[in-house]
Design a protein around this nucleic acid. Structure first.
Lengths: 208, 208
DNA sequence: AATTTATATAGTGTATGCAAATTTAAAGAA
DNA sequence: TTCTTTAAATTTGCATACACTATATAAATT
């Protein structure tokens, strides 16, 4: 497993909550687990830390940050600001090929099993297809990061069960508005869609 | 020079455009220049890449990305979405101590010399003082990244000369509106302030 | 008993060396 | 000349080894 694969693997394992939260993560532990040495692990950790998947734990070590309702709220608020922008700029460039591909995503999600990470991937793919034409690579990369994190929060507890249906319905509505060429209503719906995710998260994280 | 210092040093040297743009940067070159080995350099590079200060150059190497009007535009648009949010949420928590500290920043900037990096620092410090009370650490960190990049664009060409005065005036107005307890007008002004930065950048980058 | 200090253990940071991959340069064919 | 192919040189990726720092445990002092 090379450096880049290792980064992805560790990131997904953090998202799957395989590694303990809130207590120091040892480089050697990771190196042993992934059957490599500490050097590529360190490269991956540096990147993961920059992206917020790990935070400082004490003076010299790193840890998976504990889930935090406050962070989830932040992530959603940031999404609420940025995704409507991306969609609004993308809409003039949308075409039926893209909308069709987005619909394929929804179908795939409907048939996918219960793996939270798989659903997360398809969800981002759906959104990304619609945003892509805005042609803002920095923004798109940022949005992906936000999605990956939010999906971790959504997937962790079996939130998906109840929320998945509502989300799917909103996705369908969004596509319909786009097909019907109603840009402002589509943007407004997207805003509500993200707000709904925020609400769902707050409800479920309040328990923890 | 330890790992963390090295990261900051390389980042600032990229911002100062000490390293060539658009052509591969060798690890050993950096290690020699900063009088260390490749290992801490690699750690720094991994983080800098994650943050977008470096991009892939070919299959195995990294480079400083060329300045791009499109990226500057993106950064400003993202700021325009996020900073008004931060300010709006922070305003209820603002007090005269904070506003005083912000004014100190402006004074310091007025007396500072011509070093673009110094001005950049003071500019972010000013904005950050006003946003801080929103208590959204993820958002604040993101905004700092955006500022660091935008300030690189602003500082690179001697844009600062003409723009600095306008910017300073807008900062003063913003403080006045906050002192006068006119939150919505303050937010609106901030939005224009960022739009002005975007316009300035587009004018100057069009030449290049 | 509580707090501090010493000491041992564990863990991170860094340097060097080697193997694999990539880039550069050169040689040959179209 | 231009495009492939091949070979040499450079550069990156990774592993091991060592030095230094941090943390935890135990002893000693108040």
């Amino acid at each position: 497993m090379n450096k880049a694969e290792l980064y992805l693997q560790i990131r997904d394992d953090i998202r799957r909550r395989i590694w303990p939260q809130g207590r120091p993560l040892k480089q050697q532990t990771l190196a042993d687990y992934y059957q490599t040495s500490r050097i590529p692990v360190r490269d991956a950790l540096a990147r993961l830390t920059a992206e917020g998947w790990l935070v400082s734990a004490g003076k010299a070590s790193l840890m998976v940050p504990p889930l935090s309702a406050a962070e989830a709220q932040e992530l959603c608020l940031i999404r609420q600001q940025l995704e409507p922008l991306a969609l609004r700029l993308a809409i003039p460039q949308l075409n039926f090929a893209i909308l069709g591909a987005a619909e394929d995503c929804l179908r795939a999600a409907a048939q996918a099993g219960t793996d939270p990470l798989r659903h997360g991937e398809l969800n981002w793919q759906f959104h990304q297809l619609l945003y892509q034409p805005c042609a803002m690579p920095t923004l798109l990369q940022l949005l992906q990061q936000l999605h990956l994190k939010v999906e971790m929060y959504l997937g962790f507890q079996q939130v998906s069960l109840g929320y998945a249906e509502q989300s799917a319905a909103e996705h369908q509505q969004l596509l319909q508005l786009l097909r019907d060429n109603q840009p402002e209503q589509a943007v407004a719906l997207l805003q509500r869609h993200i707000a709904d995710a925020a609400t769902t998260l707050q409800r479920h994280l309040a328990l923890a």
